[in-house]
Design a protein around this nucleic acid. Structure first.
Length: 859
RNA sequence: GCGGACGUGGCGGAAUCGGUAGACGCUGGAGACUUAAAAUCUUCUUCCCACAAGGGAGUGCGGGUUCAAGUCCCGCCGUCCGCACCA
């Protein structure tokens, strides 16, 4: 009996598929079309197990769809612009383009070894002018349609390196390289008007039946539509020519619980106060230190500065509320100014307790209606209004309307819809991205680059010796002439956010003419993406931007589709144990750390890779030093924790099918998968076991009704599981079938079962399946074969097991014909010895019978 | 801080509609084959009490609804993801 030899078979079949063009998508095919896409990778250097899992899932679906008669588009490309390439350039003095292209070449080889059913003829890389040039054309379309504008917006500024930092480069408010305290600085930047589509993006979620509810909910919250009241407080004195302050609130009903008014540190009023008051200026500067990220700002300790000014309560002239500048008020939301109601908002309560402001209850908490609010936990629930004059007794919603009505009648405010969603800032002060195709002219302003001058290509001769934007520093690149007036002008040196690249790549995959971004009818032959698979971390930004971009194209008449992705699946991460070694420092390290000899007992902690360690007697040791290693938490594979596993050696050793099989086994795809040596070995053993079953198959006569039923239930089950992307369940069902086949004696049924099983495993273990298909004389490639059909007549059981419970506890089981009448089941249950023992002569109070399921006797 | 999810044996997980908790796999134990090992095969493996028959407990924790709760409701705890310049 032979062994399945992936080392030979994998490459052989991969070559055959490639030469036959098996996975080329044919737009003109008459079969129903199916677009399967996984989020394209950033070419970081090596494929990691997370990619392997992602692409294996998509591949199983793509291959399955081919077998069920679909014409499948399953492409692959590279999200090739981004920061790591520039970091590599700085650290290793290698050009970002060179680094990126080398990574792409290496990763393409790695992917090909896994035997994915990809149409490589459509491969694209976003860093090439033949991609980003078309993106520039789309940007100009948006520009001309009024969907692009410039405004001032804050960035993280490193005052030492004189450069803009990404949020992830700001660590505890300091620049990652310089260590300097980061400042928020305003720059004039480009924005895309995603807020124009806020309503439609929100409404569109309702039709996305193929998306997980959690993702839709996250997007809904992100868009954050809220009804509220925008109104003007009179101020006790004018400042910078303003005698009022406009605030926005979603809780106008709580207006009588207000105890202070606050503005953001970058609100114009704060700036005006700071101009005259050095203390205020100091506070504003303090608030502006540190990064721009909302997580940092909102989790910081709540602080305020009392401006000494007051705002007059809209319903009572004599009621003055102190006016603060506060670090937790966001300039980007609403009007950048709020009124605080401490009793009914936790943030406001924390603030009020800190600055000893009154805390007044205006919503009754059950029976509690006293005006004086006790405790440190705000009450944000529903209730009826108290201590609120004309609102007393109203419910929250009613009171909201009443206040809005009064404000509108009094002319001091109006009910509005406010969105949390902000316009998409696409400017990046970096080199490795799509150049924004704009020329700045002193007299004409920003002017689009003429279409015949596209693409605006990145210059190759740039240096990364100094931090900052190399495009801006380049001696000649930004010199240009105004396309309108011909005068000397300056090229825009900002590049586009890389999310722009990933906002339309799925359209380019479907249609890639040379002279335009895509052809409408060709793209629409494939769109929308039927099944998109990627990590949850993209649930909001990437997916929202892609939805927006498609809508923008739709508005311009370039596409009829509005929703780019009809089916979405978010898969879990691949994790691994981490290994931490505590060892004495070497002499060099001790020197470098400045530890003197007295500190000799100090030890150094170091992460080890899975290859560095060995297992002995249930403990783990460092192979080099022999010291025991402590096993850390199971975490997402990452370079910093050194817990990565490279797919290449694993594929060498076990073959692509075993790796793919493991990626699909056990863990449900939406959950994390823990990589383990034992797991991959288990998959390898199973692949070999399948082969032995196939190879040892003998034709025989006779029927095996049990096996026939098992086979047909497996066909139906595996198909349904693949369609639901429940690969772990499909794998379990194939295990069960193979167990049943192994136990069965040779028969015609067994022969059929084995032959059919080969087709069932074909999407998951395609190399083994081709090998087996050929060995058993199958016609053509199994990749082109048809998915077997389940015989409905064999799916129904004729006998079922009925659970017999007494007071909800299982006491016995009995076999009954399927569909047996209730009374019959009840009689059978009551006849049971075990039931009689439990009853002990008592009469049952009640008997519940669920046909084909159980009988529950209540005593 | 805000928003979203998840939690079941030693481990990964299954349980489609509120109806037999633990399918399938991993690990481990015992045995067969072998000169031996690997591979393979057989068998056991939620915990506790018991020689056994059998009994009890059990799905993160605390309550609740129900004849019946892993599943529904309320309140906690823990872990993970996102928060607009990481991709």
């Amino acid at each position: 009996m032979s062994r399945f030899n992936p080392q030979a078979a994998d490459a052989r079949w991969q070559k055959i598929w490639e030469e036959a063009g098996t996975f080329h998508a044919d737009t003109s095919a008459s079969r129903p079309k199916c677009y399967v896409l996984e989020m394209f990778p950033y070419p970081s250097g090596r494929i990691h197990m997370g990619h392997v899992r992602n692409y294996t899932m998509g591949d199983v679906l793509a291959r399955y769809r081919r077998m069920t008669g679909h014409e499948v588009l399953h492409p692959m490309g590279w999200d090739a612009f981004g920061m790591p390439a520039e970091n590599a350039a700085m650290e290793r003095k290698v050009h970002p383009g060179e680094w990126t292209r080398a990574n792409i070449a290496a990763m393409r080889d790695q992917l090909k070894r896994l035997g994915f059913a990809l149409d490589w003829s459509r491969e694209l890389a976003t860093c090439e002018p033949d991609y980003y040039g078309h993106e520039q054309a789309l940007f100009l379309d948006f520009f001309e349609a009024g969907l692009v504008y410039r405004k001032q917006s804050a960035v993280n500024w490193d005052p030492v390196d004189m450069t803009v930092l990404a949020n992830e480069q700001v660590i505890d408010g300091k620049g990652w390289r310089s260590g300097a305290t980061v400042e928020r600085r305003k720059l004039s930047q480009w924005f895309l008007k995603i807020t124009d589509f806020a309503d439609d993006l929100l409404a569109g979620l309702e039709e996305l039946d193929g998306w997980p509810d959690k993702v839709k909910l996250m997007q809904e919250n992100w868009i954050g539509k809220s009804q509220g009241l925008r109104f003007r407080f009179k101020l006790n004195r004018s400042i910078a020519g303003q005698s009022t302050l406009t605030v926005f609130t979603t809780r106008p009903d709580t207006i009588f619980g207000a105890s202070f008014v606050a503005v953001a540190a970058d609100h114009p009023l704060a700036a005006a106060v700071a101009e005259k008051n050095p203390e205020a200026a100091k506070f504003v500067a303090e608030c502006q230190a540190g990064g721009t990220s909302a997580a940092d700002i909102e989790s910081a300790e709540k602080k305020g500065f009392d401006t000494g000014m007051t705002a007059i309560h809209p319903f009572e002239e004599g009621w003055e509320l102190p006016l603060y500048i506060a670090n937790f008020v966001l300039m980007d939301y609403g009007t950048g100014a709020i009124f605080g109601v401490p009793a009914h908002d936790q943030r406001d309560l924390d603030f009020a307790r800190k600055y000893s402001l009154p805390v007044r209850r205006v919503i009754a908490d059950g029976d509690e209606r006293a005006a004086e609010f006790e405790g440190d936990e705000a009450f944000s629930g529903d209730g009826s209004l108290v201590n609120s004059r004309f609102l007393d007794g109203m419910e929250v919603e009613e009171a909201k309307s009443a206040v809005i009505e009064r404000a509108e009648d009094g002319g001091w405010g109006e009910g509005t819809t406010e969105w949390r969603l902000r316009d998409w800032g696409v400017s990046r002060q970096r080199y490795w991205g799509t150049p924004i195709p704009i020329i700045h002219c002193e007299t004409c302003g920003p002017v689009g680059v003429p279409r015949d001058q596209l693409p605006v290509v990145l210059p190759e001769d740039v240096d990364f010796e100094t931090p900052g934007n190399p495009l801006d520093r380049h001696p000649s690149w930004k010199d240009a002439h105004c396309p309108k007036c011909g005068e000397a002008a300056r090229r825009e040196t900002d590049t586009l956010d890389t999310f722009a690249n990933s906002s339309w790549y799925f359209i380019r995959f479907a249609s890639q003419p040379e002279d335009k971004p895509f052809d409408k009818s060709e793209a629409e032959a494939w769109l929308p993406v039927g099944q998109y698979i990627g990590g949850v971390e993209h649930a909001i930004l990437h997916l929202l931007y892609a939805r927006f971009w498609t809508r923008a194209l739709n508005r311009l008449g370039k596409l009829d589709v509005k929703e780019p992705i009809s089916g979405l699946f978010t898969q879990g991460m691949v994790t691994h144990e981490t290994y931490l070694l505590n060892r004495p420092p070497t002499a060099d390290e001790r020197h470098a750390l400045g530890w003197d000899d007295e500190a000799a007992h100090e030890s150094i902690s170091e992460w080890l890779t899975p290859d560095d360690v060995e297992r002995r007697a249930g403990k783990i040791f460092d192979q080099r030093s022999g010291l025991e290693v402590s096993v850390g938490r199971i975490e997402k594979m990452s370079k910093s924790k050194k817990n990565t596993v490279d797919p290449d050696p694993i594929v060498d050793q076990y073959g692509a099918d075993a790796v793919r099989w493991f990626m699909l086994s056990d863990s449900p795809p939406e959950r994390d998968l823990e990589w383990s040596e034992a797991g991959i070995e288990g998959s390898w053993r199973f692949v070999q076991r399948l082969w032995r079953l196939i190879d040892g198959n003998e034709a025989a006569d006779g029927e095996d009704a049990d096996l026939d039923r098992k086979l047909h239930r497996t066909i139906a089950g595996v198909g349904a599981d693949i369609e639901a992307l429940s690969f772990n369940k499909a794998v379990a069902k194939i295990h069960e079938l193979s167990n049943a086949i192994e136990k069965a004696a040779p028969s015609a049924s067994r022969d059929t079962a084995i032959r059919t099983m080969v087709r069932l495993v074909a999407p998951m273990a395609p190399h083994l399946a081709e090998e087996a298909w050929q060995a058993m004389g199958g016609e053509g490639l199994i990749a082109d074969a048809e998915w077997p059909e389940a015989d409905a007549a064999l799916l129904v059981e004729d006998e079922v097991t009925i659970a017999v419970q007494v007071n909800g506890k299982l006491r016995d089981t009995l076999a009954a014909a399927k569909g047996a009448p209730k009374i019959e089941l009840e009689e059978m249950a009551l006849a049971s010895d075990k039931v009689a023992k439990q009853l002990d002569g008592q009469e049952p109070k009640k008997v519940i019978v669920v046909p084909d399921r159980l009988v529950n006797i209540v005593i």
